[in-house]
């Protein structure tokens, strides 16, 4: 008897796997679970065995029945679900349910990366006003009144002594006024130039200024810092050069060029056939500047640098007209 039960169990296992549709399922039910099915027959056959054996055999048959009902129910559920799906005819090629997709302005993305690099090098971030005094924008940066260097930066004036800052450098003075060395900051911000608007210039742009003043800061270290920045930002294989330039608030002053990554230094339209791209201006803080902020120029040396975020973004993304950055055409913004 026990063997027969085992046999039936094995048969059930096999039959259940062969059920493909509701017809098979019904046949399965009729075969095992109906009143005239195999399991009913088993119950009937109990009478033929000894009374002592009956309880244990009966228990086995109960277990078998429960098992059979369970697999039947599971199979039924699967088949039902399958048929539901079939009747719905789901078209998975229909578009998904999307949301508006936001974006950060490319200038913000560039600035974020520049900030990240310098913050990792230990620079703090500082800020200052855009409406600025002549004193901070020019005088304390060693642009004396009536000095031709003032012509380098066409200025919007608010009054005789108040103007829209032409660079972020005035914040250098503000930071040094309230800090004793060491000072190590970057200063991102908006600056203004009174220039005709064209593909190459806009009435305003954004800069990141850097300043480090301490004992023993050298030009050599300035180079190292900026080379490290440029490699982190533009790629570690880049070539670079520093060439002399002039800014009233640094001495010596330099401009940093990197090899044009569009033509690999062979010369193209973007690098004006030179193979080089100018990316920033820098230099050692001029001792005259220290006089204005009360630093001892015998004790401290320092460096400063500044770069245009628009220029760097334009180079990086291959944008050839600065105005598109301020048009905010959504088709442009969504590319970033």
């Amino acid at each position: 008897m026990l063997e027969k039960i085992k046999e039936i169990e094995a048969k059930i296992e096999q039959d259940i796997l062969n059920i493909k549709n509701s017809e098979d399922l019904e046949n399965f039910r009729l075969k095992y679970l109906s009143r005239k099915g195999i399991i009913s027959e088993l119950y009937d056959s109990i009478k033929s065995i000894s009374i002592e054996e009956r309880p244990s055999i009966g228990k086995k048959i109960n277990e078998l029945k429960a098992y059979c009902q369970q697999v039947y129910a599971e199979k039924k559920k699967i088949l039902e679900e399958f048929s539901e799906k079939k009747s719905e005819q789901i078209d998975l090629s229909l578009p998904g349910r999307r949301k508006w997709l936001g974006s950060l302005h490319p200038l913000t993305q560039t600035l974020k990366e520049i900030k990240l690099i310098f913050q990792r090098m230990g620079f703090d971030v500082a800020d200052g006003p855009e409406i600025e005094e002549d004193y901070y924008n020019f005088e304390a940066l060693n642009f004396p009144p009536e000095h031709p260097a003032r012509d380098m930066q066409d200025t919007f004036f608010i009054s005789d002594k108040v103007l829209l800052r032409t660079h972020t450098s005035p914040v250098q003075i503000r930071v040094m006024e309230r800090t004793t060395p060491p000072v190590r900051v970057i200063i991102p911000g908006r600056v203004y130039r009174n220039e005709a608007i064209s593909a190459r210039s806009y009435c305003l742009f954004h800069q990141v200024e850097g300043l480090y003043v301490d004992t023993g800061v050298t030009f050599s270290e300035l180079k190292g810092t900026l080379v490290s920045f440029a490699k982190q930002f533009f790629g570690s294989s880049l070539k670079y050069r520093f060439r002399p330039s002039f800014f009233p608030f640094t001495e010596p002053s330099a401009e940093m060029d990197i090899t044009c990554f569009l033509c690999d230094g062979k010369g193209c339209r973007v690098c004006k056939q030179t193979g080089w791209l100018e990316i920033l201006g820098c230099g050692m803080v001029d001792p005259n500047v220290y006089k204005y902020v009360g630093y001892d120029s015998e004790k401290y040396t320092g460096y400063a640098f500044g770069m245009g975020i628009e220029r760097i973004s334009m180079l990086r993304y291959g944008i050839d007209d600065i105005r598109i950055l301020f048009d905010n055409d959504i088709r442009f913004l969504k590319q970033f």
């Binding site: 949301k99 508006w100 997709l101 936001g102 974006s103 950060l104 302005h105 200038l107 913000t108 974020k112 855009e130 908006r190 203004y192 009435c203 305003l204 950055l325 301020f326 905010n328 959504i330 913004l333 969504k334």
Partner: peptide, 21 residues
């Protein structure tokens, strides 16, 4: 500022930068 920017980008807003004159 950056936290707000990131939040709003996640909410589907596009950042713009405009002339202050």
């Amino acid at each position: 500022d950056d936290e707000i920017r990131n939040y709003l980008v996640g909410r589907g807003f596009n950042e713009i930068i405009t002339n202050s004159l």
